[in-house]
């Protein structure tokens, strides 16, 4: 009898979710497409002047990426709940938080990573000064995992309800406000030639905290929402 371990469980869930995303890789491209569409609409709405666009570019890219991630969040637990595989995670011998951490990592790898790769393109379309791009990317690298972790925590509470995308946005907004403020703050400080390390450090601290706390909180939320 091969005993299950924390590692085999974590790997099994991570591998499963990545494999599923690969089987439906067309869907994985949708958030990127969405971000591209939104970023394209802004110049039409505001006019093509480079000076204006470059001033708002970082904020638009940031908000667009986070909204694109929001769209994908409903798919984090709902399919597993509908086909009964979520119960298998709930009943598994491994700590539920650990297995959910694997799911959250898979979510970040399959939705945030493509968006991260696309964001230099979005930034270029909106005339973001090239010198600021590394700061924007650093902010995104810290903000997107936070979005995945906090989003998972909130979406876990909605498992077992009727489909409710708007509710998810409403619940997630208060959690995202500080993330957006610090991420955008870093970029706008860099754009004005001011020191930008402090807001990035705050984001990093929040990320570390969320990495430690969010999976366990997410597990508690899931058990409450499913009354297990």
């Amino acid at each position: 009898m091969s005993a299950p371990s924390a590692r085999t469980g974590y790997v099994a869930v991570l591998r499963r979710d990545l494999l599923l995303a690969w089987r439906r890789r067309g869907e994985a491209a949708l958030p990127v497409l969405y971000a591209l569409i939104v970023a394209t609409l802004f110049p039409f709405a505001l006019g093509p002047e480079g000076a204006l666009l470059s001033r708002i570019a970082a904020g638009v890219v940031l908000v667009t990426v986070l909204l694109a991630m929001l769209l994908s969040l409903d798919g984090l637990f709902r399919p597993d709940w509908e086909d009964g595989s979520l119960e298998q995670l709930l009943l598994a011998p491994q700590p539920l938080g650990l297995l959910l951490a694997a799911k959250i990592l898979a979510h970040w790898l399959t939705t945030a990573l493509p968006l991260l790769l696309a964001s230099p393109l979005l930034a270029a379309m909106l005339h973001l000064p090239t010198a600021v791009l590394p700061v924007l990317m650093a902010a995104l690298v810290l903000a997107t995992p936070l979005m995945s972790l906090l989003g998972a925590l909130v979406v876990a509470l909605t498992v077992g309800t009727r489909r409710s995308g708007m509710l998810l946005a409403l619940m997630l907004l208060p959690l995202m406000v500080p993330v957006v403020i610090f991420a955008a703050g870093a970029v706008s400080a860099a754009q004005q030639g001011l020191p930008f390390i402090a807001p990035l450090a705050w984001l990093g601290a929040a990320l570390v905290l969320a990495l430690v706390l969010a999976p366990a909180a997410c597990a508690a939320a899931l058990r409450i929402a499913l009354d297990a």
């Binding site: 009898m1 091969s2 299950p4 099994a12 869930v13 995670l89 598994a92």
Partner: peptide, 11 residues
């Protein structure tokens, strides 16, 4: 394989 990773396998 996923189930076995989570729960182990019977001897």
């Amino acid at each position: 394989a996923v189930a076995a990773g989570l729960y182990g396998q019977r001897e």
